[in-house]
Amino acid sequence: MDRKLKDKIWTSILYLISCAVVLLLVALVLYILNNGKHFLDFDFIFGKPKYGEEGGGVGPQLFNSFYMLIITLAISVPIGIGAGVYLSQYSKEGPFVRILRLSIETIASLPSIVVGLFGFLIFVNLSGWGFTLLGGALALTLLNLPALARVSENAITEAALDVKESSMALGGTKWQTIWKMIIPTAFPGILTGIIITAGRIFGEAAALLYTSGMSSNNKGLLNVMRPAETLAVHIFKLNSEGTVPDAASIASGAAALLVVMVFIFNMSARLLGRRMMKHR
Rank of each mutant, 00 (worst) to 15 (best):
I32D: 10
F131H: 11
P188F: 06
V26P: 03
G136W: 00
Y15M: 13
N266M: 14
S91M: 02
I104C: 14
G36N: 13
G135S: 06
G203F: 00
G94S: 01
L126N: 07
S91G: 06
L102I: 08
G47C: 08
N223H: 03
S216M: 11
T211D: 12
I183D: 03
G80Q: 05
K4P: 07
L100Y: 11
L133N: 02
K164H: 07
I195M: 00
A207H: 00
I45W: 02
M1S: 13
N223Y: 02
V259Y: 02
Y67L: 09
A149H: 03
V151A: 01
L40I: 15
A207D: 00
D41F: 11
G119T: 11
E93K: 15
M277N: 07
M277E: 13
M68H: 00
L148K: 03
G82D: 06
L25Q: 10
L62W: 01
C19R: 08
V97C: 03
M261S: 14
R3P: 04
T243N: 14
I190K: 10
R98L: 04
N125K: 14
G55S: 00
M277K: 15
I182E: 12
A149Q: 04
I13A: 10
L238R: 08
K92L: 10
N218V: 12
V163Q: 09
S12A: 12
P146S: 01
A159W: 12
A137N: 04
G203N: 05
M1I: 07
G273M: 06
M214K: 14
I75M: 12
A160Q: 10
K180A: 15
V260R: 01
L148N: 01
H279D: 08
I99F: 09
F66M: 13
K8L: 06
R200V: 00
W175P: 06
A83V: 11
I17P: 09
A186M: 02
L30G: 13
I17H: 07
I194Q: 01
F66Y: 14
I250Q: 15
P245W: 01
E241D: 12
A255K: 03
Y31G: 08
I183N: 02
G47M: 07
T243F: 15
L140Y: 01
M267Y: 10
N218Q: 05
K219P: 03
T132H: 00
F265V: 05
L222G: 11
I201P: 02
A137P: 05
K92Y: 06
L62Q: 02
A206E: 06
E158A: 15
M168S: 08
I70G: 00
P60W: 03
P49Q: 10
M214C: 04
L191H: 09
P227S: 05
A255L: 13
L272G: 08
L40K: 05
